[in-house]
Design a protein around this nucleic acid. Structure first.
Length: 505
RNA sequence: GGUCCCGUGGCCGAGGGGUUAGGCAGAGGUCUGCAAAACCUUAUACAGCGGUUCGAAUCCGCUCGGGACCUCCA
């Protein structure tokens, strides 16, 4: 059995994962800024790290998963008007900041539920940790790596870089940063272009403000993640995740702050998921190509040909390795929709097959497939590969490919089209693995299922009537039933053994 | 401009010096009262040009094309 390896952005290579304090694992993921509705782009990191969380737990680790809610406004742009994004939105929408923040937090939670993402263990808010942030800033000031100007506090990157490897994570060189960082308005407070704010003085019109040793203001861009991850996971902790766009400056700054405050780099393994693109372009407000989750699920967006079920999106995302870019297209999502359906039908068939096995046979090694050693062994091989694929930096794409290779075997066995027999022990292994990975580790759920027992009972009645019609060779009636049901989205299938199954379209 | 990443068949995408990835779509067939589904078979690949090698899609160089970060952003 292979060991779990994780691609560490810090070292740019895959490393064997060794938690600091097994069996405990600390996992921190940068959460959403709840100043607006979640969009397709948000889906990727949270689904990616949901699978990371699920898999770590599957491996037996006791994971504390912390994902923050950024509800204290980060600035629109450094230096410029220090306008609080959330405060501005509140003015526009005539809402209290907290009202706005809670509205979008709830919407975010709803989206995560749609995607079947497990809740983090702790979901700290920035506004709930102002005190922790202030004391961390005080600490950095006391150690001489920050300075106060006019009610704001800045981190002295140049001083830090003289002693510590600033830019290690993002591959930045400080001199180049100092040379190439754009001229932005209102930067005169900072000693160096590369310095970043730990605390910002709030202008008079600013709604969100807290008292601090430096006057009324609000925390800087990066301090919340450092303060909260330390509070709940200690320092250093095991895994910090987020989107690649956070690599610089956000995570680089986190490293610098925490290194000064705690005397050591804060994180062992940095993980970054790649972006979702639309027509080759990153999705972003500035590109005006943002698809909100509500639009995605309802199909109400100019770029969308149809609604896409959250599970289709989840499956689509997991079909690509998390460090590759994933380009969005209707065609790709529609392909994913059919593929996922195929996977679930195979799963349900396999479940039926498994449950129909006589008691006792499931666990016993019964000979009977002796001539089919090759097939049985191939199945076992594919199942074991699930784990190897996941251990290889969470390669969900390979897990799914393996599942698809198993689908024809399952279907053939389930429809009695297989010329060979499967050993009961192999059926059990297959079912256990297939089900475990599909549902528990990849976190996929069936897209379509009967609404309730009433529907099932009615369907059974119709199927019964149709069956009788077919016995009379009254194909007009039987075809009418099948046709009408198809029109309302239920597809009947006459199975080989004379039974009738149905799927919801 | 600086730093970095990528370019796989109609579409999406794993892999990564020699052996079929996989999905969706397409073609042919089996089964079926007819369908659907399923099963079987199946074409079109590794951007281009050089180099290393017995052998390169896989390594190296160059060219072209695309993208990310350097600015709030998942």
């Amino acid at each position: 059995m292979s060991a779990l390896t994780i691609y560490n952005s810090l070292t740019r290579q895959k490393e064997v994962f060794q938690p600091l304090h097994p069996p405990y694992v600390g996992l921190y993921v940068c959460g959403p800024t709840v100043s607006g509705e979640s969009h397709l782009g948000h889906a990727r990191p949270y689904i990616t790290f949901d699978v990371v969380y699920r898999y770590l737990r599957h491996l037996g680790y006791q994971v504390r998963y912390v994902r923050n809610i950024t509800d204290a406004g980060h600035f629109e742009e450094e230096g410029r008007e220090a306008e609080d994004k959330i405060a501005r939105g509140a003015v526009l929408e005539k809402l209290e900041p907290m009202e706005l923040v809670q509205k979008y937090t709830r919407l975010f939670h709803w989206g995560m539920q749609q995607f079947n993402c497990l809740d983090p263990n702790i979901e700290p808010t920035a506004t709930g940790h102002i005190i922790e942030q202030i004391s961390m800033i005080e600490d950095i000031l006391a150690k001489g790596y920050a300075y106060v100007v006019n009610g704001s506090v800045y981190f002295d990157v140049v001083k830090y870089a003289a002693q510590y490897p600033y830019g290690q994570l993002s591959g930045r060189v400080l001199d180049e940063l100092l040379a190439t960082t754009r001229e932005l308005e209102g930067q005169e407070e900072k000693r160096h272009k590369a310095d970043f704010a730990l605390w910002k003085k709030a202008p008079p019109q600013h709604i969100m403000r807290w008292k601090s040793p430096w006057g009324e203001g609000f925390p800087g861009w990066h301090i919340e993640c450092s303060a909260m991850s330390t509070k709940y996971l200690g320092h250093p902790f095991d895994i910090h995740g987020g989107g690649m766009d956070l690599l610089f400056p956000h995570h680089e700054c986190e490293i610098a702050q925490s290194t000064i405050a705690y005397g050591e780099p804060p994180v062992r393994y940095w993980m970054h998921n790649n972006m979702i693109t639309i027509n080759g372009r990153k999705m972003g407000k500035s590109y005006n190509n943002v698809i909100k989750l509500t639009e995605l699920f309802s199909g109400q967006h100019p770029l969308l040909e149809q609604p896409y079920h959250p599970m289709v999106v989840r499956f689509y995302i997991l079909q690509t390795h998390y460090r590759s870019t994933l380009d969005f297209s209707n065609e790709a999502l529609q392909a994913a929709e059919r593929g996922l359906q195929r996977l679930w039908e195979a799963h349900d068939l396999l479940e039926k097959l498994y449950r129909s096995m006589p008691d006792g046979q499931a666990s016993a090694m019964v000979s009977g497939g002796d001539g089919q050693l090759e097939l049985n062994e191939r199945i076992q091989q594919l199942c074991t590969d699930f784990e190897d694929a996941m251990n290889d930096d969470f390669n969900t794409a390979r897990v799914l490919a393996n599942m698809f290779e198993l689908v024809p075997i399952i279907n053939a066995a389930g429809h009695q089209q297989l010329g060979e027999s499967l050993r009961p022990a192999v059926v059990q292994l297959l079912y256990n693995h297939f089900s475990l990975y599909l549902k528990d580790i990849l976190g996929l759920q069936p897209v379509k299922k009967p609404d309730n027992q009433l529907v099932e009972a009615l369907l059974d009645l119709l199927i019964e009537i149709r069956k009788e019609a077919r016995l009379r060779k009254d194909y007009a009636t039987s075809d009418r039933i099948r046709q009408q049901l198809l029109q309302i989205g239920i597809q009947l299938k006459d199975e080989k053994d004379g039974s009738v199954s149905y799927t919801f379209q």
